[in-house]
Amino acid sequence: MSHVLITAGASGIGRAMGAAFEAAGHTVWVTDVDGAALAELPRTWRSRQADAVDEAAMAAVIAEIGTLDVLCANAGIAGPTALVEDIALADWRACVSVNLEGAFLVAKHAAPAMKAAGRGAIVLTSSTAGIYGYPNRAPYAAAKWAVIGLMKTLAMELGPFGIRANAICPGAVEGPRMEGVLAREAAIKGMTRDAVYAGYAAGTSMRSFVTAQDVADMAVFLGSDAARLVSGQVIAVDGHTENPDPKF
């Protein structure tokens, strides 16, 4: 039985990943800080309440799993939506910590387990903000760029042991987190939420947001034998972003 661990797997993209991996025949393990959301997960999943930046908790979960076949380092927070000069250092650090250090810590402890098995796939959730940068999202963009650098290094270090690493870069994903971003950006720009939404969609060649399922499907592919020689890659699931700062 193949085992997958998904951090921040109790809602949004992470929960969609869990459902997709289970449908593909994997045993699903999930960590999340939200105990209430964990309680609502399917009973077939194995879950632990843990903060992605709690190294001891991440190490304990991986030790409990034993043989880990796929790691989805998915934990992240949106961080502040503000001009760089208006961002508090504490907010910057919190955003970078969860998005970057969370990925580092779980990968750090997954690597020895995967080396021992001589196989494995690591999928890190970055963002199109990690490809283009985004106005009003400095800490988030900086962290997501760094996640790609971490992924490239993991791919080089772990490839000789039969372990692959790739990064998925979702674009604007339908859901509560993006709704918060839209509301904050609308307030900054003095616009309606719908106008900001339309601007984001217009910044893609396919004129569309993506769904959590779109991202989950890519994660399952990257974790599968069909992607056995796909490593070190940055793969956007975004409807092809043409302009990360659409002019309204």
Results as ranks from 00 to 15, higher is better:
5 L>A: 02
5 L>N: 00
10 A>S: 15
12 G>W: 02
12 G>K: 02
13 I>Y: 02
15 R>A: 15
15 R>M: 10
24 A>Q: 03
26 H>F: 15
30 V>I: 14
40 E>R: 15
40 E>W: 01
43 R>P: 06
44 T>S: 15
46 R>M: 08
46 R>E: 05
46 R>D: 01
46 R>H: 14
48 R>P: 01
50 A>Q: 04
50 A>P: 01
51 D>Y: 05
54 D>P: 02
56 A>F: 00
60 A>M: 02
64 E>P: 08
74 N>F: 00
76 G>L: 03
77 I>E: 07
78 A>M: 06
82 A>W: 07
85 E>K: 02
86 D>C: 04
89 L>W: 12
93 R>S: 13
105 L>K: 02
105 L>M: 04
105 L>V: 14
108 K>T: 12
108 K>E: 11
110 A>T: 08
113 A>L: 02
114 M>P: 06
115 K>H: 02
116 A>G: 07
118 G>D: 03
120 G>K: 01
122 I>N: 00
126 S>T: 02
127 S>T: 05
129 A>H: 08
130 G>A: 05
131 I>E: 14
132 Y>H: 15
134 Y>R: 14
135 P>H: 03
136 N>S: 07
136 N>G: 02
138 A>E: 10
147 V>G: 06
148 I>W: 06
149 G>Y: 08
151 M>D: 13
151 M>S: 08
152 K>T: 13
156 M>S: 12
156 M>D: 14
159 G>P: 09
159 G>A: 05
160 P>N: 10
162 G>S: 09
164 R>G: 05
165 A>L: 01
166 N>Y: 10
168 I>G: 07
170 P>W: 00
171 G>F: 08
174 E>Q: 14
176 P>T: 11
178 M>Q: 14
180 G>T: 11
182 L>A: 09
185 E>S: 11
187 A>C: 08
188 I>M: 06
188 I>Q: 01
192 T>N: 12
200 Y>I: 13
201 A>C: 10
203 G>M: 06
204 T>V: 03
208 S>L: 04
208 S>R: 15
210 V>K: 00
219 A>K: 01
220 V>T: 07
220 V>P: 03
224 S>V: 09
231 S>W: 08
231 S>Q: 10
233 Q>P: 00
234 V>A: 01
237 V>Y: 13
240 H>W: 14
